[in-house]
Simulated assay, not measured.
Amino acid sequence: ITRLDYYVGEVMEKLKEKGLDKNTIVIFSSDNGPHEEGGADPEFFGRDGKLRGLKRQCYEGGIRIPFIVRWPERISAGSVNGHQLAFYDIMPTFCELIDDKGFPKKYINKKLEGDCFDGLSFAPTLLGNADKQQKHDFLYWEFHETDQMAVRMGDWKLVVKKGAPHLYDLSKDIHEDTDIAAQHPDIVKKMLEVIRQEHRPNDMFPITLPKFASDLSGKG
């Protein structure tokens, strides 16, 4: 952490030296939550506090990460926003900020069938125009290493572990302790359909799919 802090400081000092610090957007984030690899001890740092889970798990502690943006001439210091975004939103955001009207067409790989972008620019949120911000219908994750999948729709969060679905209401249960799947079968069904839609089978990344309602129809 000390080394990281030092390196970030070097970047910020160089921007200041070049006279670019006031009108350069700087984003600080991470690619996952805490992990146990290489001798790391998340327990020592109290990792199981507000959020549950580790890297390559679909609980919030594994996928919800810090996201800090600094842009003094455009963003008010200390402002906070609850917009839900993912890393694939970065590309369209940068394209909008530099007025690249070729996105997404010029970035599509024409040789790759079905190539597309799921990202939505969050430039309106950054610039204080939240009323113009597009929002994701859902966010989706899967990790074959832990055999977990997840879907988030607003405050509803479905975590599928080894094919078994568990539903949580993050507005009341941010630590994901109380599975309420049995009380909300319609919501579970809707979120399972997202998994059916988004999952792409791959022998290199095997994962246990949940049972879909349509697979069970007509069976006694």
Rank of each mutant, 00 (worst) to 15 (best):
D5Q: 06
G9Y: 03
K18C: 08
D21W: 12
N23Y: 08
T24I: 11
I25S: 02
S29G: 10
P34F: 04
H35P: 03
R47A: 12
R52K: 12
K55C: 04
Y59P: 05
I65C: 05
P72A: 02
E73A: 06
Q84R: 07
L85Y: 01
Y88I: 15
D89C: 01
T93D: 13
C95A: 15
E96A: 13
G102V: 05
G102I: 04
F103I: 01
K105E: 14
Y107R: 08
N109I: 13
K111S: 11
G114P: 06
G114A: 03
F117T: 11
D118G: 09
L120R: 03
P124Y: 13
L126P: 00
D137C: 00
D137S: 13
E145R: 08
D147W: 03
A150L: 09
R152T: 09
D155H: 10
D155L: 08
W156D: 10
W156Y: 05
K157D: 06
L158H: 00
V160W: 04
A164N: 14
L167E: 04
Y168S: 03
D173Y: 03
D173C: 04
E176M: 11
I187C: 06
I187H: 07
K190P: 00
M191H: 05
E193K: 09
V194K: 02
I195A: 04
Q197D: 13
P201N: 03
D203S: 15
P210N: 11
A213P: 02
D215K: 14
S217R: 13
